[in-house]
Design a binder for these strands. Structure first.
Lengths: 194, 194, 194, 194
DNA sequence: TATGAATGAGATTTCATTCAT
DNA sequence: CATGAATGAAATCTCATTCAT
């Protein structure tokens, strides 16, 4: 890769990071190109040098966040340890993202309201990939007789749903720390898997 | 109540029902006043006779659906039967709404993205009330020694989250019927409560 | 037709007339919705109440002008007189429009630069209809042995081209009056038809 | 001329040739600097080294095509043969350009819509020069008693118009070949000149 | 010379909201 | 009560142009 291409990529990522920040504050629909640009001390027009349109920008935000999360999940899956351990770590990771990156991580939730046509399917695909990691570890844990359950797909969705919901009610200043929550969620799901 | 007021109420409800339909198809942010009006063979302008503004209309949609669901939950809670039975019926009800009334019932979306200022707190209040029903039945079940768990709040949220997520992946044409799903979800949550 | 519909149509036509005026001054691409609105003492937004988008507005401008011209041609064709006479009158009419309504009449010329996709074909269709009148009168004149020529299609295009070109060089303040030009053009084409 | 100036000229011409290609595809107004640059595997910015601005670029495109055509016309005029022959060849040439170089050659477009201020007059001047060749040959043919007509200016415009219009309807895949058309057009104009 | 990046002005479009009738 | 019409603010997007490197 040429230096200039690298620089372009860097800038693009910089923009994405800013955009993610704004989107996490204001939500998707309420984020304007103007605001994203302002955050970067750029002008609207410049954004269009890097991204085809708003949908494209949002799409790449989502992709960036999810792909980062996926990397972490992958690392956990690759560890040589019990399936329980892997699952626990994956839960930790997911909850971190769900709480910290709220909105961007969240297109996960209603992509069809944000994306239309061509971009929707890729988004859904990434989402499926992501969910697949949870499915995998549960399924493999079952095969390895470490877990016991007949519906790995449903369990994984059950888990994902309960974790995604956290953003709605979890209060960092509340009684339970994030870590405690992470442990409790792991405990609960393991009860289902026994 | 005078007849005219009654008629007003009827018309209002009619509008809400149409609005709910559209919102369930298009999502909150993507529903325009025009579309709601069109569905009712009215014009945009007329809607403003019944509702102060769009936010108000959406607010009342949300409220209507939630209050209907709350009535059902109340009925289940009032039954003279085991807590397990009550919880099972409540899960059934919630899943019915979550799947059928997708958007309007949709408690997932950050209300702060749709509602601003004066309407936000009332919305959150209704939601808390709603969630309270699940909290209540779990807490009481614990007090009655039917369930066993130290974190009724967290369990109820865990449950709500997993159910709300259903809209994202549940496919009516898929392998599992809605009824099977309802049973499985009840089973899982009961495992946590034992 | 209801009164309200009539009023709508009236207003639409009023807008079209203003738009035609602006377009004739500035050309298609250089006419902005803002300007059209300003001419009518309206705001941009209001135009969108009457027309779906800019292309639609321009399309209807074109249609209006052409359909008026077509009416006149039709009247000439229907007269009970020699084909030569009919053709002479049609030439008169066309030249009047070509000189007076320059631009709007002119989308005739490069519709593909102004219209895209769905609107292009209808435009071409109207254009074909229009040109068809000249073809008809020539063809019929030949059948009636009043004219003599083997290529009515080509003659009609030859004629239309020469007339459309008038806008490029005709100067109302020049030596020849519009009426003289109209006669000369008729003379020339009749020479070809003998 | 220094070598560097020569190189500059070459590059300029290269750019013009590419630009002409694009303009012929997309039309004057719809051609963007970006597209022209892309065709040359250059970047927008570079174009500004060679041309002051877009108008300048388009101007020179138009000029280049017209001046090439003019050269050919000149050659035909200079031949020692009948005026009829000269005129026939000029018609051939013009029709070739009108059909092949559609847009850039396009004399139909109102230059005032594309060119403003300083560039407009030069454009009109070239066009007049171009048209002048047809005027000349007709006028001289009349003086030489080979043609007979009192309005050489009008005849030449009549001819030019009919030929320019060809781009609007001529279909290479149609019944008549380009050569046949060229003959027919010559025939028609000669009828007028006799 | 050439380029990559940024700019900014302006154009189109959308839509909640208002209001006279 | 209902509507048709108008509004205006804001958002997206385009593109010619500039300029430091």
């Amino acid at each position: 890769m040429k230096l200039s291409e690298k620089r372009l990529l860097n800038k693009k990522e910089q923009i994405l990071i800013s955009a993610i920040k704004i989107v996490n504050q204001k939500g998707f629909q309420n984020t304007t190109m103007e605001e994203v640009a302002a955050e970067l001390l750029m002008t609207k027009g410049s954004l269009y040098y890097y991204f085809k349109n708003k949908e494209d920008l949002l799409f790449q935000c989502h992709k960036l966040v999810l792909s980062r999360a996926i990397e972490e999940l992958q690392a956990h899956i690759d560890e040589e340890t019990t399936y329980e351990n892997r699952l626990r770590k994956m839960i930790k990771t997911h909850i971190d993202y769900a709480i910290e990156e709220k909105e961007t991580f969240n297109i996960i939730i209603k992509p069809s309201e944000t994306f239309s046509g061509t971009k929707l399917e890729p988004i859904l695909e990434i989402r499926r990939t992501y969910a697949g990691y949870f499915y995998r570890v549960i399924k493999d844990g079952i095969s390895a007789k470490e877990f016991k359950n007949d519906e790995p797909k449903i369990v994984s969705m059950f888990l994902l749903g309960s974790m995604n919901w956290l953003q709605q009610w979890y209060n960092p200043a509340g009684k339970k720390s994030k870590e405690e929550i992470q442990d409790i969620y792991a405990e609960y799901i393991l009860k289902i898997l026994k």
